[in-house]
């Protein structure tokens, strides 16, 4: 796979909260077409890092460029699909069917006065099929289970036809069968459609054959260009802390 221009360029990024250093001097690039997994212990700063890439949190210092532009000059946010951590915690009274939510994925692709075009409907339907939520289309999201909601949120992100997918533990509460389906989907989106994927997960073993690089975030960033080797490394447990045992099950799910 050929990688082209960098989508994200991060230089010397620091994030402090009340003098406490949450992220320490982090630098990396994410290239177009890459599939990157981010791991790290709870509180390691993975979510914070992603939120800074998306302009939701301001770094204390450092530079972030996206498609070569500074965040505040960047206009093409419709190229980005984002599933936040705990996306399933929606207000259970929110008046939305699964269809309504997945339609939201098309919002910034649609012109001001236009309704959903045939193309929009096709893309939405396709996203719902990929995430296996088509038969839930007319259900109110508040009535779904946590795992089902999580899949709906992923479908919404897919429906925006993103060039880059940023997923913050989208699998929490999703059953094993759906998880494997999801890993296969990500692999295919990356390999066949060239979508760049940034995937925060605690379960990197099962996707180790798919990913290009592995970032370990625990205040500092450690970047591994050869994930398969890294996973057998002894020092993983020091980088990854108490969750290190998770990385040994990489023979499952294939």
């Amino acid at each position: 796979m050929k990688f082209h221009l960098p989508i994200f360029e991060v230089k010397n990024l620091n994030f402090n909260v009340a003098k406490e250093n949450i992220l320490d001097n982090i630098s990396f690039d994410i290239l177009q077409g890459e599939y990157i997994a981010i791991i790290g212990p709870n509180g390691g700063g993975k979510t914070t890092l992603i939120r800074m890439l998306l302009g939701l949190e301001k770094p204390t210092s450092g530079e972030i460029k996206i498609y070569g532009k500074r965040l505040k000059d960047f206009k093409r946010w419709d190229k980005i699909g984002y599933v936040p951590q705990r996306a399933s915690h929606v207000d259970s009274n929110f008046p939305a069917t699964v269809q309504d939510i997945v339609n939201m994925g098309r919002t910034s692709k649609r012109a001001m006065f236009s309704g959903m075009s045939t193309h929009d409907h096709e893309v939405v339907r396709d996203a719902m099929i990929k995430m296996d939520v088509l038969d839930l289309a007319q259900k109110i999201v508040g009535t779904l289970s946590g795992g089902q909601r999580q899949r709906v949120m992923c479908a919404r992100a897919l429906a925006s036809s993103p060039e880059i997918l940023i997923l913050d533990e989208p699998n929490t509460g999703v059953d094993a069968r759906s998880q494997n389906r999801f890993y296969a989907l990500l692999r295919s989106l990356n390999k066949n459609e060239g979508i760049t994927i940034v995937f925060i997960t605690h379960d990197v073993g099962v996707i180790v054959d798919d990913i290009a690089r592995l970032f370990t975030i625990n205040q500092k960033a450690t970047i591994c260009n050869n994930p398969k080797q890294t996973l057998s490394c002894e020092d993983m447990s020091t980088l990854y802390g108490i969750d290190a045992h998770l990385v040994h099950n990489h023979k499952h799910g294939h």
Binding site: W77, Y82, P84, A87, F94, M104
Partner: peptide, 22 residues
């Protein structure tokens, strides 16, 4: 009415709406 689809998205999830260009 013109901005109802955007306002609806914001009501559902302000941050995701922002990161998708709204």
């Amino acid at each position: 009415l013109i901005f109802s689809k955007e306002l609806y998205f914001i009501a559902y999830d302000e941050e995701v709406a922002q990161t998708s260009g709204i």
